[in-house]
Write a protein that binds this DNA or RNA. Sequence first.
RNA 1: GGGUAGGUGGCCGAGUGGUUAAAGGCGGCAGACUGUAAAUCUGCUCACGAAAGUGUACGUUGGUUCGAAUCCAUCCCUACCCA
Length: 398
Amino acid sequence: MSDAVSPSPTHPSLAQLVGGTSKVLSEKELDEKLKEGRPLRIKFGVDPTAPDIHLGHTVPLEKLRQFQELGHHAILLIGDFTATVGDPTGRSTARPPLTREEVLSNAETYTDQAFKVLDREKTEIVFNGEWFRQMNYEQVLKLNARVTLQQMLQREDFKERVAKGTEVRLHELQYPIMQGWDSVELQSDVEIGGTDQLFNMLVGRDLQKEEGQAQQSVICMPLLEGLDGVKKMSKSAHNYIGVNEPPIEMFGKLMSISDELMDRYYLLLLGQARDASLHPMESKKELARLIVTRYHSEEEGHAARADWETRFSKRDLNAADLPEIAADSLQGNVLEVVSQVFRDVFEIEKSNGELRKQFITTGAIQLDGERLIDATVAFEGSAGQILRLSKKQSVRLS
RNA sequence: GGGUAGGUGGCCGAGUGGUUAAAGGCGGCAGACUGUAAAUCUGCUCACGAAAGUGUACGUUGGUUCGAAUCCAUCCCUACCCA
C-alpha cells in the first residue's frame, strides 16, 4: 500500500455484521450499501413447515437482529406459499406437501417465537402468498424462462438426486425461482440465510437485476448441527432444541451434546470461543445456562443449572424439580402405571413389550431408588415418592 | 409409447416355495461405566401375551399351493436406455 491514498475506511458496522457469517457476497458491496446511510431492507425468509423455532433457526435470526439494532429494516418473510411446495434444499427426497391450514397455524407460532430474538415493533412480516397466489400461468412461465435447467442441475442436492436415481419432481425446481422472486417483490438490499440457501439467494440477485433493481447482498450463516452432532438441526431428525422448551429441558438437552459440538454451539449460538481452560463439563454447563438465560431469564438460567446439578451430579432426585402426578391416579400393575406415566407426563406412547423388555427388566424403573422389576405386581406408590422411569425421566408422586 | 431393472421392517440391505417375524449394518431405546460427553460393554428394537403362543407384515388386488416375501396374473409406483 502506498501512502499516497489511504484506502477508504469501511463502514463502522461492517465488521460486526460480517462476524460469525460463513460467507458474504460481497463484503465490498455490503459496505457500499451501508455507506449510503439509509436503513437497508433486510430479508430473511422462513418456511413455516414446522410450528416451532429451534436453535438452528436462531443463527440467522440473530444476524437479522444485529441489523435491526443498527437501525435497518428487518423483513421476516413467511413462505406460506412456498411451504406448500416444500424447499428441496438439502433434501434427498421430496418434501411432503403441507395444507394451507397447517402452514398458517405454523406461521403464527413461528412468528411468536421469532420475536424472542427479533424486536417485534421494528419487524415487518410479509407472506409471499400475497403475490404468488395472484400470479397466472403466463407470469409463471415468464419467470421460468429466466432460469435454465443446467443452472438448476448445478445444485448439489438436485445433482445428487439425479445421480442416485431418486426422483426430482418439477415443482421442486420452482422453489429457488419463487424465493428469488420474493426478493424482487420486497426490493431487498440484503438477504440472510443458511449456507444451504446460497443458490436460492443468488437466483434472487439474478431476478432483481432483470427487473432493473439493485441486487441484494447475500449473507450466509453456518448451519447448526443438531444434538447428534452430525445432521443439521431439524425437527424431522428429532435432534433439535426448541426456543420454547422449558428451561430444564433445554438445559438437559444441551448437556447431552458432545464436546466437539459444544465448541460449535459456543461459536454459533453465543458468538464466542469457549474457555479452554475450563473443564469441558463446566464449559457445557455455562453454555447451557447462557442459552437458557437468553430464551428465558437470568434466574431461570441459574435455576436450571442448580436443578440439573442436584438431579444428576448429586443424584438427589428428592430435591429436584420434577413433574408431578397424583399417586391415586396410578392404578394397576407396574407395567400399566409406567405406561400411564409415560403417556400422561411425558407424552410418549410406548408399547408394553418395549416397557417390559427395556425398562422394567433392566431395572430402569425405580420407586424411591428401589427397582421394580416385576411388571405384573400391583403398583403401590404414595405421595412424596419419586418414580424413576429412566436416567433422564422421573416424576414425583403427589 | 417400447425395452430393462426395481419396490422388503425408521433407513440401508440380504433373502427367490416350508428350518423366515424375515441375515447383516446403521439408527434408536434401556442398563453398566461416566461428565445425562465421547469411547467401550450387555440387552432390546412389529403388536398383544409372564410364557407357550396368537395376530399382523415384505408396493396393490386376486390366484396357484398343504404351505408364498419367494411362483402366476392384475394394477399402482420409481429409475435407466430408446422414441
